[in-house]
């Protein structure tokens, strides 16, 4: 019985660690933000940018 309780205790502590490890991916979020902002504000003037065509007309 003691052993079972000990196991449950260890399992509890470790599962808490698992929860903490699912952290907010800050670097990935910055990358995603940069990508979306570049597209919305059209900051990268690459060849496939659609706005370039309309401006020329």
């Amino acid at each position: 019985m003691k052993r079972v309780l000990g196991f449950l205790g260890v399992a509890g502590v470790l599962s808490a660690c698992v929860t903490i490890n699912i952290y907010f991916p800050a670097a990935a979020a910055e990358k995603a933000a940069d990508k979306i902002i570049d597209e919305v504000w059209q900051l990268q003037n690459d060849a496939k940018e659609p706005a370039a065509d309309t401006q020329k007309k």
Binding site: N21, I22, Y23, P25, A28, A29, K31, A32, K35, I36
Partner: peptide, 9 residues
């Protein structure tokens, strides 16, 4: 697995 993940956009 979470550390390496990229965000889906």
């Amino acid at each position: 697995s979470y550390a390496a993940a990229d965000l889906e956009v």
